[in-house]
């Protein structure tokens, strides 16, 4: 989290820094948990696309609060490196690779996960249809891993953007879980299309044993699973895909939580204190472009 972006002037941003969270998204998971009691009785958790690690921080603090949970295991996976978090095993790995699955199952000592979550989002391009497609692919990659590690009855939570085709995903997830809910925590800005898909009660597809295979793309993986992904036909015809509406729940206590789209006046003595981010941002891919610009080396030659 940087310090001065316009988008970051809300109270959750400041609170996150005060409370030591690496990102303000920590509050989203906390509010989802308040609503759905996601952490209740949970011993094995996988946090996907975890960097910078705010959800892992929440999982670690909330689950290990309960002394009975001292044997709980949390695995955080991301392609990016992540600084260590107490009680969390971090893996820098590709979530679609079978080796990653093996490693997770090793850490769980053969047991299956109670809860899989993913707060991942691609860098948006602004081309809404493409962004929605890539986000759906990311959810499918997370779901692919989830179907391999979740125990029956386990829960899956992932970030979604309520775009035009999100109803297709609701319908497909509905075939794998008892309950599929679209939830919007108060800490997620009303102006953003972001929501979270909360899938409760995993029911594995009968007669189908999910296996990660690097030779299969996520699309091909789910083709075999028959949850209604579109199929390629000899005559190239379009499948009419089933669309479904998921119940929508706003969460976060109105009395005690803040509105992320509102501006709050800080207490007097806090007003001029600027807090440093808990975790400094990682180098963006365009770091060199910024450096060249700063040095004035981007001149036109004519």
């Amino acid at each position: 989290m940087g310090k001065s972006s316009k988008d970051k002037r809300d109270l959750y941003y400041r609170k996150a820094k005060e409370e030591g969270w690496r990102a303000r998204s920590a509050f989203k998971l906390l509010q989802l948990n308040e609503q759905f009691e996601l952490f209740k009785g949970v011993k094995r958790v996988v946090d996907l696309c975890a960097a910078p690690g705010s959800w892992s921080q929440v999982l670690s603090r909330e689950i290990f609060k309960d002394e009975n949970n001292s044997d709980a295991k949390i695995v955080a996976v991301d392609l990016q490196p992540m600084s260590p978090i107490d009680h969390v095993t971090t893996l820098q790995a590709d979530i679609t690779h079978p080796k990653t699955l093996e490693k997770i199952l090793d850490i769980f000592e053969g047991g299956k996960a109670d809860f899989v979550c993913s707060d991942g989002a691609p860098d948006v391009t602004g081309l809404h249809d493409l962004d929605e497609y890539i986000q759906a692919q990311l959810i499918l990659s997370a779901l692919q891993l989830a179907t391999c590690v979740l125990k029956e009855g386990g829960a899956f939570v992932a970030k979604i953007f309520r775009g035009r085709d999100i109803d297709l995903l609701y319908s497909q997830l509905g075939l794998l879980f008892d309950k599929v809910i679209c939830a919007k925590p108060r800490s997620s800005r009303g102006t953003s299309l972001e929501s979270f898909i909360v899938c409760l009660g995993y029911k594995p597809r009968a007669g189908w044993n999910p296996k990660l295979n690097p030779n299969l793309s996520t699309e091909e993986f789910f083709q075999e699973m028959k949850i209604g992904r579109p199929e390629l036909h000899d005559d190239l015809s379009f499948d009419a895909e089933e669309r479904k509406v998921a119940p929508f729940i706003a969460c976060g206590d109105l009395a005690t939580s803040y509105d992320s789209d509102a501006t709050y006046t800080l207490e007097k003595d806090l007003q001029r204190t600027s807090l440093d981010p808990v975790q400094m941002p990682t180098a963006p891919p365009y770091k060199k472009a910024l450096e060249l610009k700063r040095k004035g080396e981007l001149k036109i030659i004519k």
């Binding site: 890539i134 030779n215 793309s217 996520t218 091909e220 390629l232 036909h233 000899d234 190239l236």
Partner: peptide, 29 residues
């Protein structure tokens, strides 16, 4: 297509001919 497959369409029959890949199914931008 987005998972690095090439779908070949026969334009005379307007039917699917085959799907080829290079065994590297990265997602494409």
């Amino acid at each position: 297509t987005a998972h690095n497959n090439v779908t070949i369409i026969d334009l005379t029959s307007m039917k699917l001919k085959e799907v080829l890949n290079c065994n590297w199914k990265s997602i494409l931008y």
